[in-house]
């Protein structure tokens, strides 16, 4: 069973449908026990870093993520769901001012891309490290991005990179914890393949 963490962020139906194409049972939930015990947990996220973080804390999503990692249970962050795994988000917000503390599994901060036109919106090619599990069979493909902030320093065991104005992290594999800055659930057949690759590891 795959749980999609519902902490008030975004269009979860499309994520649910995309993960359900693998044949797995997919539940959108904020139930702690279900999220802890699920074979795989997906942490989605759209909007702003600060609002996602406050939603995550309100549903104890940060504790769920840490508890799952302590038990090596597969967890996948998507878009802002990737960003909040880092120490700090530099996206300004009315509530927090200049920056917001993330869950802090990975070191470093999420900074604004240096590009004249933002958001970075659309399909961009992603270059994964050799031996990547997530990108097996889809090593040289485009995925759908919508964001203005990103991680630029390497973390985890395998990285995938892309470029818009500057080079940044498109995906990370770090043991049980994986994350993508792009939206696999919106990246057509290629995205569904990535989801299938992840589900195959559960």
């Amino acid at each position: 069973m795959i749980a999609i963490l519902d902490y008030g962020s975004g269009n979860l139906r499309s994520a649910q449908r995309a993960f359900a194409t693998t044949g797995e049972v997919v539940e959108v939930t904020s139930d702690l026990a279900v999220c802890l015990e699920a074979d795989g947990l997906v942490v989605p996220g759209v909007g702003a870093f600060q609002s996602c973080m406050s939603g995550l804390l309100a549903t104890h999503g940060d504790e769920i993520i840490r508890a799952r990692l302590a038990k090596d249970r597969p967890t996948l962050g998507i878009c802002i769901g990737m960003q909040i795994l880092f120490e700090t988000g530099l996206e300004p917000s009315r509530a927090s001012g200049g920056s917001t503390a993330g869950v802090g599994i990975w070191p470093g901060s999420i900074s604004k891309l240096t590009a004249p036109i933002l958001p970075h919106m659309g399909w961009n090619t992603v270059k994964p490290d050799e031996g990547s599990m997530l990108f097996r069979g889809i090593e040289d493909q485009s995925f759908y991005f919508v964001h203005s902030y990103a991680a630029t320093e390497s973390v985890g065991s395998f990285q995938a990179w892309t470029e818009y104005g500057q080079r940044f992290l498109a995906a990370v594999e770090d043991g049980a914890l994986c994350a993508t800055q792009f939206h696999p659930e919106k990246s057509g057949a290629v995205g569904l393949r990535l989801i299938k690759n992840w589900v195959a590891t559960l």
Binding site: G122, N124, T125, K127, Y164
Partner: peptide, 8 residues
């Protein structure tokens, strides 16, 4: 690595 033109 380039952002593609979108056809909608």
């Amino acid at each position: 690595m380039t952002l593609s033109v979108r056809i909608i």
